[in-house]
Computed example of a mutant assay.
Amino acid sequence: MALPAAKPPDGATLFKQQCAVCHTTSLSEPMRQGPPLVKVVGRPAGKIDGFRYSDSLARAEFAWDEARLDAWLTNPQAVIPGVVMAYRQAKPETRAAIITYLKELN
């Protein structure tokens, strides 16, 4: 008997489980340890009003895109040395699901 196909990871659920402790998806909610991630795709890194970024992230000179977010979720310190985000996600399918969810928030 064949096993049913695995259900792909749901980005919204993964975000709630792994990211929502530190990040919101709304500008109206109080800021948490990390900045709000609504409309993060295309947004300049380290540049949202009202959030105090680490010096290294505040000096970043790029906008978030899928490739940058994927690298960031894999290893934030490899993207910008000196950042304080400790989260890392080794599974490409989990990163892809979270990034797809973030794109839907744009």
Rank of each mutant, 00 (worst) to 15 (best):
G11C: 01
A12P: 06
A12D: 12
T13W: 11
L14Q: 00
K16W: 01
K16V: 13
Q17P: 08
Q18E: 15
Q18S: 13
C19W: 14
T24R: 08
T25A: 07
S26E: 06
S26W: 08
L27Y: 15
S28I: 12
S28P: 06
E29W: 13
P30H: 03
P30F: 02
M31T: 10
M31Y: 13
M31E: 01
L37E: 06
V38R: 06
V41K: 08
V41C: 05
G42N: 06
R43P: 04
P44N: 13
P44G: 09
P44F: 11
G46E: 11
G46M: 03
K47M: 08
K47P: 01
D49H: 12
G50Q: 05
F51P: 12
F51E: 13
L57M: 15
L57D: 04
A58I: 05
R59P: 09
A60H: 03
A60C: 09
A60L: 02
E61K: 09
F62N: 10
A63H: 07
W64N: 05
D70S: 14
D70Y: 13
A71S: 08
A71G: 15
Q77E: 09
A78D: 06
A78M: 05
A78N: 05
A78S: 01
V79C: 05
P81H: 00
G82W: 01
G82V: 07
V83T: 10
A90S: 04
A90H: 04
